[in-house]
């Protein structure tokens, strides 16, 4: 027999019928609530990383705002003299960018060919056993702390460079480039090797069936099909080289200048930031704020590079 409220409120009735059914009853309420709470905390944790990024951006912008009030953006970005802590002060960041890119370019000259050759060797030539042994060993190179590389550059590479090329200064871009090249090499090797491995076997077999040599297959078929991801690995290596701090601080020196001579002392963006934090520049002064402005620039550059790499990786997946 139908009751009046059933007729009036079919929705409510339906809801009651469903929720009071015996099957729905069996999961105790406290378990449901407990799981809701757990999932809430898990979800909250995953927002921590978003929060970190937001904070980094906020801090860099807000702390360098004072700097950009006093120094026009154009003077900062295109000025060719960097002397923020000594009078007469000048805030042109180009010498620091020059130093950073000099070291990065030098590092890439080493890491790119060596990294790619090694990746091709591991993926296409080496036996599985050799590969499984060599890859982790090469990855040790990227696990060694950067301060150790700085020490190596300063006490081993620079003296050798000085014997070969006597004009080499005690602090110089060349030895920093070499060690940064060594430490970024495993990034290119490891990620490119992964990329080459994802190229389907059928593609290789198809090429071999046409009578191609291993060299031709590796460089013209496999490498080309894996190019987006190989490119991503190179971009990530560049990003790492630009952000590299301790080795360049120890080896390349603290002389901001516009030079293309890699045997001279230069200063990178990161080395400048270290210089400020080691010195006693008082908080709130323009000298202190310069460090945040340089940090902001560094963050924007690496962020852009990382995004580019992500895009390349993402594109290949779909």
């Amino acid at each position: 027999m139908e009751r009046r409220w059933q007729r009036r409120s079919p929705v409510l009735f339906d809801w009651l019928r469903k929720n009071l059914s015996t099957q729905a009853q069996t999961m105790p309420l406290y378990i449901r609530i407990k799981e809701k709470i757990i999932v809430f905390f898990l979800a909250a944790s995953s927002f921590v990383s978003v929060f970190i990024t937001a904070l980094i951006i906020y801090i860099l912008f807000s702390e360098s705002a004072g700097f950009f009030k006093k120094v026009p953006l154009g003077d900062f970005l295109f000025g060719t003299r960097w002397s923020p802590l000594l009078e007469p002060a000048s805030y042109g960041v180009l010498p620091l960018i020059n130093g950073t890119f000099l070291v990065t370019a030098g590092a890439l000259i080493i890491a790119l060919p060596v990294g790619l050759l090694t990746a091709i060797y591991l993926s296409e030539y080496a036996s599985n056993k050799t590969r499984q042994f060599l890859k982790p060993v090469l990855e040790i190179l990227s696990g060694i702390p950067t301060v150790v590389y700085g020490y190596f550059a300063l006490t081993f590479i620079t003296p050798i460079l000085q014997t070969i090329i006597p004009i080499t200064e005690v602090f110089n871009a060349a030895s920093a480039s070499i060690v940064v090249g060594i430490m970024t090499l495993p990034i290119i090797t490891s990620l490119s090797d992964d990329a080459l491995q994802t190229v389907p076997r059928s593609l290789r077999e198809g090429a071999y069936a046409l009578g191609a040599t291993r060299f031709e297959v590796s460089t013209q078929i496999v490498l080309i099909s894996a190019l987006p991801r190989v490119g991503a690995s190179v971009i990530l290596a560049v990003s790492r080289a630009i952000g590299e701090t301790m080795a360049v601080t120890l080896a390349a020196g603290a002389t901001p200048k516009m030079t293309a001579n890699i045997f001279e002392s230069v200063q990178t963006m990161t080395a400048y930031i270290v210089e400020v934090s080691l010195g006693d520049t008082p908080q709130g002064t323009i000298g202190y704020q310069t460090s945040f402005a340089v940090g902001l620039l560094l963050f924007i550059i690496t962020l852009t590079l990382n995004f580019m790499a992500q895009r390349l990786l993402y594109k290949k997946k779909h």
């Binding site: 469903k18 929720n19 059914s21 099957q23 729905a24 069996t26 999961m27």
Partner: peptide, 8 residues
């Protein structure tokens, strides 16, 4: 039915 708990 959606209201039936799949787990139980």
């Amino acid at each position: 039915l959606k209201s039936v708990d799949a787990v139980s």
